[in-house]
Amino acid sequence: MIRVRFHGRGGHGMKTASRILGTAAFLEGFRVQDSPLYGAERRGAPITAFTRINDHPILERGIITIPDLVLVADETLLEDPLANPFLGLHAGSLLFINSPTSTQAMAEAVAARHPTPARILTGDLTALTLEKIGKAQALSATVGAAACKLAGVIGMGALEKATRKELEELGLPSPLIDRNLEAALLAFEQTPRVPLASAPPQPAPLQGLVVPVYQPPARGTPSVAAPGNIILRKTGGWRIFRPVIEYDKCNQCWICFVRCPEGAISLDEKEDPHIDYDHCKGCLICVEECPTKAVVKEREVHAW
């Protein structure tokens, strides 16, 4: 069995990528499952999708906790605890990261910050997507194609048919499907073949079942009494663009501070504004509103 996990943000098309891989494997004659996992859907929030490929019926359901192949569409997700792309990686598995950073540099960065037994591979699918499709977020075809190549059991013919089928079901106009196909075939060619190895089966550890007890209603009922705990939910990773304040142009008018819908801009004792990048979602209202153009947007190039 090949277990593949896709990590992206809402809008990246990772559900479609998992379906392109799923359909392609199905066309190659395999038993397949694919499924997305998302909650309250919204652009920018982490989503995960899964594809299982096997030559026997698949006796698994739901999320993949021990993947053989993980594809990360957006490197900012590497450190997002909700996405957790490192979950369950093992020595036989491959972590593919969509990034302009070289495989070598990325491997070093990962080793320094989040060591994993998995092998690392990077590819700049965003650049290819921008060039062929014209929209950096439309990664479903290129990530799907990379997944097909790395799965190692899918030919270009199946990829082409699967991509067309999945994009037609989304109602994309024919010229756009053609551009996606071109990008997908290029991504397939560019992506190297890397052998995968499934993790050896491990006996399930005993989990220790609890006997639930009734708890006093002030504790055991579904309400939230703590005020203001949204601070715990860091949403800075949602940004595609980062607002940056150029203080030499700032006239301390407070407009960015007042208009920020997240309260992510504060004033210091000198009345200079400061952006809380842990919580700024990158809506860029401050950039739009700043009368002196002191807040500029920069492409979010991430810590990796």
Binding site: G39, A40, P212, Y214, Q215, P217, A218, G220, T221, P222, S223, V224, A225, P227
Partner: peptide, 28 residues
């Protein structure tokens, strides 16, 4: 556990994702 007091705000009728959270409240 469930009341309306301006001095003690409560978020009631919350949504949860994650079966272990739902299971806890349902089994209560």
């Amino acid at each position: 556990h469930a009341f309306f007091k301006a001095s003690r705000p409560l978020a009631q009728g919350i949504a949860v994702l994650g079966g272990f959270i739902y299971s806890y409240f349902r089994y209560q």
